[in-house]
Design a protein around this nucleic acid. Sequence first.
DNA 1: TATGAAATACGTTGTGC
DNA 2: GCACAACGTATTTCATA
Lengths: 150, 150
Amino acid sequence: MSSALEPVDKAIARELNADGRCSFTDLAARVGLSVSAVHQRVRRLEERGLIKGYTARLDGDQIGLPLTALISLTPTDPAAPDDYPQRLEHIREIEACYSVAGDESYVLLVRVTSPRALEELLRQIREVANVSTRTTVVLSTPFEGRPAPI
Amino acid sequence: MSSALEPVDKAIARELNADGRCSFTDLAARVGLSVSAVHQRVRRLEERGLIKGYTARLDGDQIGLPLTALISLTPTDPAAPDDYPQRLEHIREIEACYSVAGDESYVLLVRVTSPRALEELLRQIREVANVSTRTTVVLSTPFEGRPAPI
DNA sequence: TATGAAATACGTTGTGC
DNA sequence: GCACAACGTATTTCATA
């Protein structure tokens, strides 16, 4: 197994998760280490893949993607090889893809410009992955992307 | 309605969404504007709420939250006032809360340490929000948090 | 809104512990 | 693995167009 996560690294991860643009100077102060030590540790966390990247959280409505949906996938041909994520990866409207336990095989989180765009996206997903879909439209998002409980 | 999104602001949002720690200097070069102009625009996008914040994307396994689940909520008492998000907000294991169209009222995305923690979380959600739950366990995450198609 | 310049703060690397 | 110091670069503000 991978080596245990030290409290300092945990604190660094927590702080950067809550504020991804936090300066190394601030970060150092918050975790009680020198700037260069923090710098070194952040680099290692990035290399390890514990920190997978940094992103600005955007408002869907304001960037022209006001329609969010959850799409559950069921293979049409149960004997087909399970390469669905690969087949779907190039579709940029798909923000996330989860392999799930339950009646269906995958759940996708998608963002589109309009109901028409959703219709077209569903057609594309069914075609490219050979699946049937069940779509749950998101009416509103009380909250999203909250900091992890670490 | 809010004023239309200019191409430059769109580009800024796209770049920061893809790389949240990108420097203003780089950003300026990428969108073809001076550093101070970009600085000004980023501030405005933050104030407008188009940029809601910045975050480091973390690996659930490595931070000790290896179990992800989607939880659908159905109110036990259909006559009760709909203040579910408020009731659930304090539970930090809940990363996102979507109000959805369909058989159920809400879908939650949660991350926990173990099956036992999930069991306890479900108990807590049912108690605090007076709902019944349907849980879909995530087996693996082929991809997540990809950049928005803008 | 944009730019360019000036002052301050920060990132980054090397050295020694 | 950490701290300190030194250098170059980035951020931030302001004056000006």
